[in-house]
Amino acid sequence: MALGRDFVADWIARSAQAISEHRSELITLDREIGDGDHGENMDRGFTAVAVKSGDLPADATPADVLKVVATTLISTVGGASGPLYGTAFLKGSGAVVGASELDGAAIVAFLTAARDGIVLRGKAEVGDKTMIDAWTPAVDAAAAAQQAGKSEAEILAAAADAAQAGAESTDPLVARKGRASYLGERAIGHRDPGSVSTTLILRAAAEAAADAAASA
C-alpha cells in the first residue's frame, strides 16, 4: 500500500523519539571523533520538527510535511547536520511534490534525491566516514527492492538494514570529511555519528511503514 501524509507524520514522530532515546549514544560517538554536539543538535532539531509538523493543514501532502522538516532542521540543528539533513529532506521533498501518497518508486526517488542533496552539500563520497556511508547503500538497497517488486515497507526495511551495515562499515575508516578528518588514524575504531543517526531515521521510516501496512 502507498504511504500518505499520516505515514510521514508517524515517521517523523518515530525519528524524533529514536533520536531522543539515542541522544547520549550520539553524543558519546561524536565526542570520540568530533565536537560532541551531534546528539544534542539532532534532538533539538527533531523536537522542533515534531512540533512544527503538527501545525500543518489537513490537506498537506507528504512533500509539504517533508519540506517543513527540512526548513526546521536547517534553522534549528546548528551543527553540520542541519544543512546536511535539511538539504536531504528539501531535495527529497522536491522529488515527490504533488503526490498525495508515496509508492515504492516515490520512496526510491525521495531517498535518491535526499542522498544527492547531502553529497551536493557535503561533497563526501562512500568511504569518507560520513553519513553517506549509510545513505548510499540504503539508496541502492531500496532501488533493488523496488525493482524486485517489494512493498513500500519492505523497501524501507531494506534501506534501513543497508544503512545499519553501512554505519558499521565506518568503524575501521580514517575520516576524509568533517571534523573527524583532523584526527587522522585516531578516528579508526569509532563509528561515524552521522551514519548512526541516518540509520535511526531510516529505521523509523521502516517501522512506520510496517505499522501502516499492518493497520491497513
Binding site: I74, A80, G82, P83, L84, G86, G122, R179
Partner: peptide, 14 residues
C-alpha cells in the same frame, strides 16, 4: 571558518 559554516552559508544561499 570550518566546513559546516560553509554548508550553512550555502544553504542560506539556496
Amino acid at each position: 571558518d570550518l566546513g559546516s559554516a560553509i554548508m550553512t552559508a550555502e544553504t542560506a544561499l539556496d
